[in-house]
Design a protein around this nucleic acid. Structure first.
Lengths: 361, 361
DNA sequence: CTGAAAGCGCTTACAG
DNA sequence: CTGAAAGCGCTTACAG
């Protein structure tokens, strides 16, 4: 172990070729005679030589490193997204550096700089407010990046996003079809595009079905379990208590369950509940949460692919947008099996272009 | 944006100093006159110069990159651990590259190589079988690394681990004290130290309380929800059905719940359940799982600290071991509130050294 | 406190 | 198919 680290020149000397030939053999460059390559690779194997990664990165100007910025790695949504990103990246021999901003705005800037110092070739932001100066600066400089499940106001850049408006619309419609009339929503804050879009979908559904929109039934806060918990406590003490709650994500829905159970009430008998995300716990037989599935793993895959294409082709103003369709997952948290299904109503003035609003933002 | 990338020499020229002085100013080297430093930094700011990260890494031989290998990032246990690691690492200006082996053994080797190619300064393995050749090789080469919540047979290296034997012992004891006599365990496979240790704690508790050990009550498999589900189906069809099930982690416990509910039975009325990990969903008011808390975030923090100490001090055979104490979290999945508490039995021949077995492995 | 030299270990680009 | 040259943009180590 005390031996000096081998370099490409040592191998070259022993193989009686120039170090360039060794470099080519190592990089699968076809311009090396088969026999020479074999001799070199045998030597490399025998001596267990591994090229110095840092020198390689420095010379080639490519780190094969992707920076991933999420808002909370302990949120299963991001964990699953990260898995999709990581799998696809490794498939193409890229590594993923990650950081979790924990919704603290100062962190984004610090982390972006830290990652730049690590020499990342590009970024994936799965956590970004509507206005985020560091990110906007990167976009201006045409630094390769893709936004996942977030939109930045007015910026044109790569993004992969779920049609949140539609997902929220469909799940609200599901509640309406089940006969609920007093439907509340507890969702994320208004500086996140997902929060805005889900609220918009909810409102569009109410409007299309000519239902009253009650401002007191809208509660906003961070996308956390606490928001769901506190929001529910608030909603359930109202004189005109809602019959159903739409949790803006499954975390919020989890908090709703906490509050409802604590009050000695039951889902779905006393109050119906729907979520958004389809986290693992939503399918638990004790929970059976009706929710909207986001294809997180695929979103991760796609965003990496777009990013790598951008990095390797070096296109400077490549704007790729992928909008995934949501999928409604019907379980029993709205009492779907308790009550006889009413026949599906059609929205009086159904306008399918409502979903196009994503592009109008 | 088309402008040539600035180098340290450009700044030097403009500041009328050598590029070395610029380098020093940038690295907070005290050997620069205050006035000179100020002039340089102003220029750097004005021109928005950022040193080339890759050149820096190459010259300094340090990437400030830590490789994290977990078995499944979508498992909240690892996600939370990762958060602890990432926070601590960023605090010290290190970045974390991660990968998730998804319990596929070939992946570990591939990923270790990929990460070496990224130039990592050290590794944290939170996923490692008892016998893992690549990892053993790194240990032999004294490459900085720490093992989290895993032990490798016979290897001396840094590790941070929970006293799994004790945690399993205590939770089994809890069930015994509640009066259960037929206690089954569904836990992880025997090539993982956590699986072995939890089974051992269970056995020690039964032994100390002079209870019968029934091999049919032991089910092993991967640490997944499916294992819990299938295992429970199997246990509940036995003629001598267990009264309580110890799920080796909360994921397994989640699968137990799935199966029990599906069969129309109830927890805790028909069968008691305990888990291990204290994942977020365990505390949900609808679940209320009695479990063992692992201080995942702290484990992450500590492992990074040990690793960075190792990297920066360059000690070659630094063996640091941290054994964290588990904490029993009593909720209601064993019917703690349903039945009057029986007075705590004492194990007939209580031997506290039983916990020492961790070191004897 | 400042600088001139040397070099880290590769790759890119050019020549043969 | 192979090689000699040059250089990537910093830092380390030595000199003053």
């Amino acid at each position: 172990m005390g031996k000096q680290k081998l370099t490409i020149r040592d191998i070259a000397k022993m193989a009686r070729v120039s170090h360039m030939t060794v470099s080519r053999a190592l990089n699968d460059d076809p311009r090396v005679r088969e026999e020479t390559r074999k001799r070199i690779l045998e030597l490399v194997n025998k001596l267990d030589y591994r090229p110095d990664a840092r020198a390689r990165i420095f010379s080639s100007k490519k780190s094969h490193l992707i920076g991933l910025v999420v808002s909370s790695i302990s949120n299963p949504f991001y964990a699953e997204l990260a898995r999709g990103i990581e799998d696809k990246a490794h498939e193409q021999e890229y590594n993923v550096i990650f950081c979790s901003t924990e919704n603290k705005s100062e962190r984004t800037e610090t982390y972006v700089h830290l990652m730049m110092d690590a020499g990342v070739d590009g970024f994936i932001f799965a956590s970004s407010r509507l206005h985020e100066p560091v990110v906007e600066k990167l976009i201006d400089e045409h630094f390769p990046l893709v936004l996942v499940n977030r939109k930045l106001r007015g910026e044109t850049c790569n993004y992969v996003v779920l049609n949140n408006v539609q997902g929220a619309y469909e799940i609200t419609e599901h509640l309406i079809n089940l006969g609920f009339e007093k439907i509340a929503i507890i969702t994320g804050t208004s500086n996140l595009s997902t929060g805005i879009d889900r609220l918009k979908g909810y409102q569009l559904a109410l409007r299309d079905y000519r239902m009253e929109f009650n401002e007191n039934y809208v509660i906003q806060g961070p996308f956390t379990r606490e928001t769901g918990y506190e929001g529910t406590k608030q909603l359930l003490t109202m004189k005109k208590r809602p019959e159903a709650i739409f949790g803006g994500n499954d975390y919020i829905a989890m908090g709703v369950i906490d509050a409802v159970e604590e009050l000695g009430l039951h889902i779905p008998e006393d109050i119906a509940l729907v979520g958004f995300d389809d986290n693992e716990f939503a399918s638990n037989q004790r929970i059976r949460l009706t929710t909207v599935s986001q294809r997180k793993y695929e979103m991760g895959n796609m965003s990496v692919q777009i990013l790598i294409d951008h990095i390797e082709r070096k296109e400077t103003d490549y704007t790729h947008r992928v909008i995934l369709e949501p999928r409604l997952i019907i379980r029993e948290s709205c009492g779907e099996k308790l009550w006889e299904k009413r026949k599906n109503k059609q929205p009086p003035g159904s306008e399918i272009e409502a979903f196009g609003s994503l592009d109008r933002m």
